[in-house]
Design a protein around this nucleic acid. Structure first.
Ligand code: MN
Ligand code: MN
Ligand code: ZN
Ligand code: ZN
Lengths: 125, 125
DNA sequence: AAATATAACGCAACTTAGTTGCATTATGAA
DNA sequence: TTCATAATGCAACTAAGTTGCGTTATATTT
């Protein structure tokens, strides 16, 4: 079940994702919002925003959780199957708007796949 | 720097990877070996086996670290760039001996990429 | 404009993965 | 057998994420 009440904290988080193309880690979110809300609240709101198809999450380089705004998702359909890229230089993480084809693996049923790419972004090159 | 002394603990871990095609998580390794060695030792030996090109690691579904034997790696060259697969049914994680091509991303320098696939393995289908 | 039901929040305490410092042990070379 | 030191065990710590519960605030009803 997703969000039912538009609390001050929910609005704050929605605002962050609306004005931010890049992905952001939970750790950074908690640090950024420590004056405004509890870390438990951050985790809980993120969970609900996931349910609502507002954001999607993925596991980054060090095993940390990252979140980014969904493009064309809703409660019912999560279409955000795209690679994620982390820049070694500036540290920023972004969703790549490209589709990728999985290698052929006979006899396996594929349910989901995540591709994480590390390198140097166009700004830092 | 890698391993310089063939301790009992090192032999135990080498033996596990030699007799095991599948990948294994650190958590499972620690549980499996709790009677034989300390968890700190497990982490430290795995680090060194990485340096020596004996094993490689990757981040699994939940952000946990997994390890598997390298095929053709050494201290100098780590060639193990392949996807990893986790079966939802049996939970086993394996290295896929297939190569995959990255999607074209103009203006970015790619350094490494990891592809993690979740589904049902051939045994469980 | 109250009253009210309850979703959501804050807080503290907890769990778990992984790390660090240091005293002790055991390996391999001299 | 001696000896330097790599490696281990242990305890304490850090950091990410979770849980339970009492309190607060939102949105609906009266
Ligand atoms: Mn994304
Ligand atoms: Mn592998
Ligand atoms: Zn960059
Ligand atoms: Zn299976």
């Amino acid at each position: 079940m997703g969000i039912t009440r538009q609390t001050k904290q929910v609005k704050t988080l929605l605002n962050i994702f609306d004005n931010n193309e890049k992905a952001i880690s939970v750790v950074d979110l908690i640090k950024l919002l420590e004056a405004q809300m509890n870390k438990t609240t951050v985790y809980r709101i993120l969970d609900k925003l996931m349910d609502d198809g507002v954001v999607h999450s993925f596991v980054g380089k060090g095993g940390l959780k990252w979140y980014a705004k969904c493009q064309d998702c809703s409660c019912e359909t999560h279409n955000d199957v795209h690679p994620h890229f982390q820049c070694k230089t500036c540290g920023e993480v972004e969703c790549l708007s490209v589709s990728f084809t999985l290698p052929p693996i006979n006899g396996y049923m594929v349910e989901s796949a995540s591709l994480f790419i590390v390198g140097v972004c166009s700004n830092c090159l």
